[in-house]
Simulated assay, not measured.
Amino acid sequence: MRIYYRGPDATVTSEHFVHRTPTTTKAFLVRDLRNVGIASVDGAGLPTALPLGGGAVALVAAWPLWKLSPLLAIGVVGLAGFGMAAAALLRRSRPRTWLLQAIYRGQTVDLYGSADARIFNQVSRALRRAIEDARPPSSWDDSAAA
């Protein structure tokens, strides 16, 4: 059995792909994996509509204040703008999670996920090599003549 990758949360061998989390361990046979692909998921940040809705509420609240004190209304809108900018920066600073997905025995599964691009690429490369090495050798008899 050849080992392609061994790390704290994943092991890729010529026969198995094993993903360990603090609560579970999932093992997959490499020969039963089909349509392996990479997907990315943005961090679980704020929905885009939330800061925009907050800005709309601030504008609605500042409208009556405009008649009392324009300076107070501008201050409320300015604070709302600052809050929207902070929410946008927090949303952008969330790390992207990379997922390794496949079809395993007829079901779509998430094999592995990581926010660390270096580790994720090592695991995905190891799995790609394991799948390539698990293929039956091709022979010239199967090739079509040109």
Rank of each mutant, 00 (worst) to 15 (best):
A88I: 02
L89T: 01
L89R: 13
L89D: 02
L90W: 11
L90R: 14
R91P: 02
R92H: 12
S93H: 10
S93T: 05
S93G: 12
S93D: 09
S93M: 13
R96P: 05
R96V: 15
R96W: 00
T97R: 12
T97W: 07
W98L: 06
L99M: 11
L99T: 10
L100Y: 03
Q101N: 14
Q101L: 13
A102Y: 06
A102L: 00
A102C: 04
I103W: 10
Y104E: 10
Y104V: 05
R105P: 04
R105C: 05
R105Y: 00
R105N: 10
Q107W: 05
Q107K: 13
Q107F: 05
T108F: 08
T108Y: 05
T108K: 12
T108W: 12
V109W: 11
V109D: 11
V109Y: 13
D110Y: 02
L111A: 00
L111Y: 09
Y112G: 05
G113D: 10
A115C: 15
A115K: 12
A115Q: 10
D116R: 10
D116F: 03
A117D: 04
R118I: 11
I119G: 05
I119H: 12
I119K: 08
F120D: 07
F120Y: 15
N121E: 09
V123N: 00
S124C: 00
R125Q: 14
R125I: 03
R125S: 10
A126S: 09
L127A: 07
R129A: 09
R129V: 00
R129T: 03
A130F: 01
I131G: 12
I131P: 11
I131R: 15
I131Y: 06
E132F: 04
E132A: 13
R135W: 01
R135P: 10
P136V: 01
